[in-house]
Design a protein around this nucleic acid. Structure first.
Lengths: 104, 104
DNA sequence: ATAAATATATCGGTTTTACGATATTTAATA
DNA sequence: TATTAAATATCGTAAAACCGATATATTTAT
């Protein structure tokens, strides 16, 4: 195909966006997605996405004292997210009004 | 899989949204998408989407005097779009700020 | 009316996205 | 430390999304 951004899809985009706001583990990400979408992505969905983002250098692991592993955005990841965000806004620019309407 | 909305994906959503603003032909839709995304969907992409939306009763053909066929939203399509919009906003609710930032 | 151009439709195949099951690792608890 | 629970990782498979090529239909121009 050939995408503009090298992100795979909306799920990757979403994961990157979530991690950008707060360092998160796979579980935390899954739960946040469930909260928004209503459907919790299966392990077979979320972990490959994380692996892929990690492989591309967009995120990296941080693990500290007895806490389960979390991911944080790399500098590269921040740039990628910024690019993807711009594209997202371009594609859905006319959703702004809907947001105002939907989200009270 | 099993989605919340019965729309197939973001492309279907986008097409529905575009048609909701203005009755459009396949070509016009393709061009608008190219304008936003940079990539024009191939005929093999866009027409099956239209066919699917039509089969589900979300859009219907209107053709008039020497003009190429256009589609308009049905009542059912409007309801569907509304539901999908709400879901979209729920999923991406925190994109509002980005919109303000990106779209000058 | 015929030819050329444009738009639409369809088909087979590829890639992407995601799942479910299972295995492994890590953390919490006894 | 051993046991259990939770989180992560991996694998094969399935379905969705999309493309390119080709065929057909419709408009436009000759």
């Amino acid at each position: 195909m050939e995408r503009c951004s090298s992100l795979k899809g909306f799920l990757s985009f979403m994961v990157l966006k979530l991690i950008s706001k707060k360092n998160m583990s796979g579980q935390e990400i899954s739960q946040e997605i469930k909260k928004r979408k209503g459907i919790k992505p299966s392990p077979g969905t979320i972990y490959p996405v994380l692996k892929n983002l990690n492989r591309k250098g967009f995120i990296e692991e941080i693990g500290y004292k007895g806490k389960t592993k979390r991911y944080k955005l790399t500098k590269k990841g921040k740039k990628e997210l910024e690019a993807a965000t711009i594209q997202f806004c371009q594609i859905f620019y006319d959703m702004q009004e809907e947001f105002k309407r939907c989200c009270k």
